[in-house]
C-alpha cells in the first residue's frame, strides 16, 4: 500500500493546497519572484497546482538594480521557458535619487528599494493576496507568522493580533485596502528546499554552485565583486576563491561562503552539516535584534 509519509510529498501537498486556496479567494493575486532557490521551488509548486492550466496569477520581481547579473539572466530564461506573466518593478524615486547599498548603507537601500518599492508595486496594481516564499525556519519572527497573514491598510502587520489559523481553514476575507500575505512554503526547511530541488531537478541560478569567483573579505564576510560598481577599499585586491551562495539577495548585501560543492548532492551534504544559519550571509538581518520583525511590520516580506 502506498502511503504519503514521504516528508517532501506532505510538504508539496500542503503548499499546493495553499496556492489553490489563494487562486480561489483572491480577486487580484500575485506571486513574489525573487529568483532565488525558494522562488524556484514556489514556481514549480504553482505550475503543479494548476496544471494543465497556466499559473493563474502574475509573478512580481522587485528589482533593486543590485541583483547579480546571473540572476536577471536566469529570470528571463525561466520566463521564456515556462511562459508566466512577469511584472518587474523598481522604485522610481529610489532610482532617481541613486539610492544604493554602497553609499547609503544596507538599511536605507533595503528600506527604499525593497520595502518601499514593494508597497508601491502592490498599491499600483491593487494586489489583494501576495504570495511570498518566506519560511518559518529562516528567522525567529518568521517562525511566528501565519500562512495567510493579514495586513491592515498600509500593509501593516500586527504580530500581536494575528487571526487564529486552524487546520487548513484559512480565513481569506478582507475589506478594501486590506491585504493578505500568503506563505505556501512556511513549513519547509532549507534542507527540504534543496532535497526538493534535487528530486524535481528544478533549475536554479548558477551562483548556488561553487565556482572560482572574485571576492574581497570585509568584516569576516566574503563579498563578491560582481561588477565594477563595487568600490574597492584601499589595499583591497579581489582574489579568486571557490565560493557559492546559500541565499541570493542584492550583491553587496549577500555574502558568499567558501565551498567546493559543485553538485546538488554536495550542496545538500553541506547544508546538513552547516554550523551557520543561512541568513548569516544576509547583512540586513544584523541591523539589530528584532530588525526583521520591524521590517515585516513595515511591509517587508
Amino acid at each position: 500500500m502506498i502511503e504519503i509519509t514521504e516528508h517532501l510529498d506532505m510538504l508539496e501537498a500542503e503548499s499546493i493546497e495553499i496556492l489553490r486556496e489563494v487562486a480561489f479567494a483572491a480577486s487580484k493575486p500575485v506571486m513574489m519572484y525573487s529568483i532565488g532557490k525558494d522562488s524556484s521551488v514556489m514556481l514549480r509548486l504553482a505550475q503543479k497546482a494548476f496544471y494543465p492550466g497556466p499559473i493563474p496569477f502574475p509573478l512580481l520581481h522587485i528589482d533593486t538594480g543590485w541583483k547579480f547579473p546571473e540572476m536577471i539572466a536566469f529570470r528571463d530564461q525561466m520566463q521564456r521557458e515556462i511562459g508566466f506573466d512577469l511584472i518587474t518593478y523598481t522604485n522610481p524615486r529610489g532610482a532617481a535619487e541613486g539610492i544604493n547599498p554602497i553609499s547609503h548603507g544596507s538599511a536605507v537601500h533595503t528600506d527604499v528599494m525593497k520595502t518601499e518599492a514593494l508597497r508601491q508595486a502592490l498599491d499600483a496594481h491593487g494586489f489583494d493576496h501576495v504570495i511570498g516564499g518566506a519560511r518559518r525556519d529562516e528567522e525567529k519572527s518568521r517562525a511566528k507568522e501565519r500562512i495567510f497573514s493579514f495586513r491592515a491598510p498600509g500593509h501593516r502587520w500586527d504580530p500581536k493580533a494575528q487571526r487564529p489559523e486552524l487546520w487548513t481553514q484559512y480565513n481569506t476575507r478582507i475589506k478594501p485596502g486590506e491585504s493578505i500575505r500568503v506563505f505556501p512554503i512556511s513549513n519547509w526547511t532549507e534542507a527540504d528546499i534543496w532535497a526538493y530541488i534535487a528530486r524535481e531537478q528544478i533549475p536554479i541560478v548558477p551562483l548556488y554552485y561553487a565556482a572560482p569567483r572574485p571576492v574581497v573579505e570585509r568584516s569576516g564576510q566574503l563579498i563578491m565583486v560582481a561588477d565594477e560598481r563595487l568600490p574597492l577599499l584601499r589595499d583591497e585586491v579581489p582574489v579568486m576563491r571557490y565560493v557559492r551562495f546559500r541565499t541570493l539577495g542584492c550583491y553587496p548585501l549577500t555574502a558568499a561562503v567558501e565551498s567546493d560543492a559543485t553538485t546538488l548532492d554536495q550542496i545538500i551534504h553541506e547544508v546538513l552539516g552547516a554550523t551557520q544559519s543561512e541568513r548569516q550571509g544576509r547583512i540586513i538581518d544584523h541591523d539589530g535584534a528584532g530588525s526583521m520583525e520591524r521590517k515585516k511590520q513595515e511591509g517587508y516580506f
Binding site: E139, K140, S141, R142, A143, K144, P159, K160, A289, G290, E293, R294
Partner: peptide, 10 residues
Amino acid sequence: LLVDGLAAER
C-alpha cells in the same frame, strides 16, 4: 529567547 521571536515577547 531562541523561540520567542517577537520583540514584545522578549
